[in-house]
Design a binder for these strands. Structure first.
Lengths: 204, 204
DNA sequence: GGAGTCATGTAACAAGTTACATGATTCG
DNA sequence: CGAATCATGTAACTTGTTACATGACTCC
């Protein structure tokens, strides 16, 4: 579940679409970030769903020989989709290379750790912006979408808040040479690449 | 990245272990929930890493013919691991069947939606407890682990808070017929599968 | 002696990605 | 006319899971 089949059925709830449309919606639509799939999986999935009668395929030869297949949900398809959603849902998985790397923050150079956190902050700020943009769009306006937007905002904000607190609590720039800086520098470590980065040692 | 190879290298940072040990640690250790892998991928990965010289394999025939292979990180393995962590990290993916389902909350029966939210709340409360337990354990005590625990707690709490607010804001049981029931369960619902569940209509 | 755990490995399968191959239409 | 976009599909490959096959050791 949340396999490509379900993704396709979901995309066809409410409107008909081509495989291309579905892919586009996954990239830019109201569920971006939540799900994804490639053409290589979408087209075979649509073909099979049509075989099974969960969707219908209507060929539309725009002019001469364009060849475009518009898919639409059948009553059985809709029922199947909703029934599956009501069934037992698989556990959610949060694969985060960032958090994985942070586990070894103590073994990585400090600047690198700081850069990673900054990058993560930027990425999440961007996600927040995306949600705000989606909220404003005419489509993606439903009770469910609203719930999901709110959820995303709540957790992203909490995560950002945490990252910012931790980030600013890390000792500021460690200047290698005798640099005169007017900031809150602590020490100048010439240690190159395997300098441990104490992300702990927080006033927290 | 965050493929099984990296997982194995990560598991061998700090101590040596067998394939079995690694699997156990993924299930119960300080990174549970963050990552996972099966025996079917761990053993081949270890064999290949040993071939490449990133880890060493030492056979330990406990007594007679037990056969047990203890792996340990080499200097190159350690360097490779840390270098990879410093390189560009892939985007994080948050595959959440729950949120996916919530997108269609408006098309699902209300009780079902409420049940899903309750289930999610329970699951997340459990995760919070797990983190607290890990915090208390002797292993999994490092600057990085502390950072990750804190992050998990911050986002889980925010998510839980959001879910609780929304959950309590949903109108309470909508009884279809004149059913006099003092519990929350109703088998044989007159409106079968497509009763819309307005998760919106919030005072929020 | 049987249950449970320790321990390793392989083969079949599942699901999806990347890259390729193809071609029409539209817009500047 | 060339670039971008629309549009479909397939074949090879990657990655990992499930299920199976095997066997020792430990504790009751």
């Amino acid at each position: 579940m949340i396999d490509v089949r379900m993704l396709c059925l979901a995309a066809l709830m409410g409107r008909e679409a081509t495989g291309y449309d579905i892919k586009k919606e996954l990239e830019q639509g109201s569920r971006t970030g939540l799900v994804d799939a490639s053409f290589g999986s979408i087209y075979p999935a649509l073909a099979r769903l049509a075989e099974e009668g969960l969707i219908t395929a209507r060929s539309e030869g725009g002019r001469g020989r364009s060849g475009k297949t518009v898919y639409a949900l059948t009553a059985e398809g809709r029922a199947h989709f909703l029934k599956t959603l009501c069934g037992p849902l698989p556990e959610e998985k949060h694969r985060s290379p960032f958090l994985f790397a942070m586990l070894f923050a103590g073994e990585l150079p400090r600047e690198r750790v700081r850069a990673m956190i900054d990058q993560q902050i930027a990425a999440w700020e961007h996600k927040l912006d995306s949600i705000a943009a989606m909220r404003a769009e005419p489509d993606g306006q439903s009770a469910g979408a609203d719930f999901v937007y709110g959820f995303g905002e709540a957790t992203l904000k909490a995560g950002l808040d945490y990252l910012r607190r931790r980030r600013s609590a890390i000792e500021t720039d460690t200047r290698p040479a005798g640099v005169t800086a007017n900031d809150t520098r602590r020490e100048r470590t010439p240690a190159p690449d395997n300098e441990p980065a104490a992300i702990a040692a927080m006033p927290d």
